[in-house]
Amino acid sequence: MEHFTVLAVDPRSKARLGVLRTPHGQVETPVFMPVGTQGTVKAMAPDRLKALGVQIFLCNAYHLHLRPGEELVREAGGLHRFISWDGALLTDSGGFQVFSLAQLVRIDDEGVSFRSHLDGSLHRFTPERTIRIQETLGADIIMTLDECVGFPASFERERKAAERTVRWARRCREVFSGKGQLLFGIIQGGMNRDLRRFCAQKIVEIGFDGYAIGGLSVGEPKPLMYEMIEVVEPFLPEDRPRYLMGVGHPGSIVEAVLRGIDMFDCVLPTRNARNACLFTSRGKMNVDRAEFARDFRPPDPLCTCYTCQNFSRAYLRHLFKAGEILAAELATIHNLAFMVKLMADIRRALKEGCFLEFAREFLAVYGETP
């Protein structure tokens, strides 16, 4: 049986309804994956994630390699057992950490040398080693090692990174065992249309179980991000999932679904929650503001999550002002419930043939002006 099936395509856009089959269950797409970098979605126990309807989340091979180490995770029975999660998991290879921790990193054609941000110890990632680490961790979906560049960047910098990403992807594919895991290739190319086309063609030629678009949401204007998706999309096989890495703003997700994307991940919903910023049906709400001190309404009257059914804006503001740990938990529950519902609403609209109408209505609230 194929691991990915497109169930419907919106006739007025590129939006797709699908199902992704993994060793730990089916994932309905489009889907948002919360980020659990260290093997935990911050402030959330696994049973709470499951109760919210989270189907899959992301852990990071770079961080888990440094602490506690993939061999310890293997001894514990693999990542699923170690973190007590029986749903699907994806691990990122560490390419983005190479980008975000650039001051600690040296890149060459063979791989990446870096110093741990924890203790300064020297480490070496090659494409082959990142695959071995991720195979040892045991996530359902693993990623090739790529080189991400920021914005703005010179053409030469973007070209070198795109070509290196292709070479590394080929090396990852060659050593991947394929035992009980799916391997996704990553497309780079900066903000250059020709480099994006080149990288997409080459990565697809190598052949992967899914295709990710990396190197976006790195500071570029939103219209440019959408343009790069549109450049890449025609090269992506219809029978493979498409994953836009690091994008989690609700409006950007809807815009990307319109352009044919199936999977998303980002720290934004959980990070915003820990900073008192809630996603609501009427837009973003900074619940720690003084205006909510005596506001005893739910954070979002239209939301059915545990937080909104039991607590007021005034109470959440009090928790944040008092520095209570519960503030982060209750806010994170709400923001993840919002994201789960958003993706369910997208899928429902695709099933019912009214996705364009849904998108227009949603973007009237969450659309971003350039």
Score class of each variant (00 low, 15 high):
85 W>H: 07
122 L>Y: 12
136 T>M: 13
138 G>S: 05
84 S>K: 15
96 F>I: 03
150 G>I: 00
137 L>I: 12
86 D>A: 08
86 D>R: 12
67 R>N: 15
63 H>S: 07
107 I>R: 04
59 C>E: 11
86 D>I: 05
129 R>C: 02
60 N>H: 09
123 H>Q: 08
97 Q>H: 04
96 F>M: 05
66 L>F: 08
71 E>T: 14
104 L>T: 13
145 L>N: 04
143 M>P: 06
151 F>G: 05
122 L>V: 14
130 T>M: 12
134 Q>Y: 04
138 G>K: 01
85 W>I: 03
118 L>T: 09
110 E>R: 15
100 S>P: 09
141 I>L: 13
86 D>F: 05
90 L>A: 04
95 G>M: 01
116 S>W: 10
58 L>C: 02
98 V>W: 00
148 C>L: 10
124 R>H: 07
127 P>K: 07
106 R>I: 12
136 T>N: 12
84 S>Y: 12
71 E>H: 14
145 L>T: 05
74 R>Y: 09
77 G>K: 12
109 D>R: 11
120 G>F: 01
147 E>T: 04
60 N>P: 08
85 W>S: 02
142 I>L: 15
139 A>I: 10
67 R>A: 14
80 H>T: 05
142 I>S: 03
141 I>R: 11
116 S>L: 10
148 C>M: 05
123 H>D: 06
84 S>M: 10
88 A>R: 00
79 L>I: 15
55 Q>C: 02
136 T>R: 13
96 F>K: 01
144 T>R: 04
93 S>Y: 03
76 A>S: 11
120 G>A: 06
125 F>P: 00
146 D>N: 02
126 T>G: 06
60 N>R: 08
151 F>N: 01
143 M>N: 12
144 T>P: 02
101 L>S: 08
69 G>T: 10
92 D>Y: 07
104 L>M: 14
100 S>M: 10
103 Q>K: 15
113 S>I: 13
84 S>F: 06
83 I>H: 09
100 S>H: 13
127 P>C: 02
107 I>A: 02
117 H>Q: 13
146 D>C: 00
128 E>H: 08
100 S>K: 09
141 I>F: 14
121 S>A: 15
108 D>V: 04
122 L>N: 06
87 G>T: 03
115 R>E: 12
55 Q>M: 01
107 I>M: 02
84 S>V: 13
149 V>T: 10
77 G>C: 08
116 S>F: 06
81 R>I: 10
105 V>M: 01
76 A>F: 10
82 F>C: 09
133 I>C: 08
67 R>V: 13
85 W>K: 06
72 L>Q: 14
97 Q>M: 00
81 R>M: 09
58 L>G: 00
131 I>R: 10
125 F>T: 02
85 W>P: 06
83 I>T: 02
78 G>M: 07
145 L>I: 03
90 L>E: 09
146 D>R: 01
137 L>D: 07
98 V>Q: 00
58 L>P: 03
89 L>E: 08
70 E>R: 11
147 E>L: 09
70 E>D: 13
138 G>A: 08
134 Q>I: 05
123 H>C: 08
105 V>H: 00
68 P>G: 06
135 E>R: 05
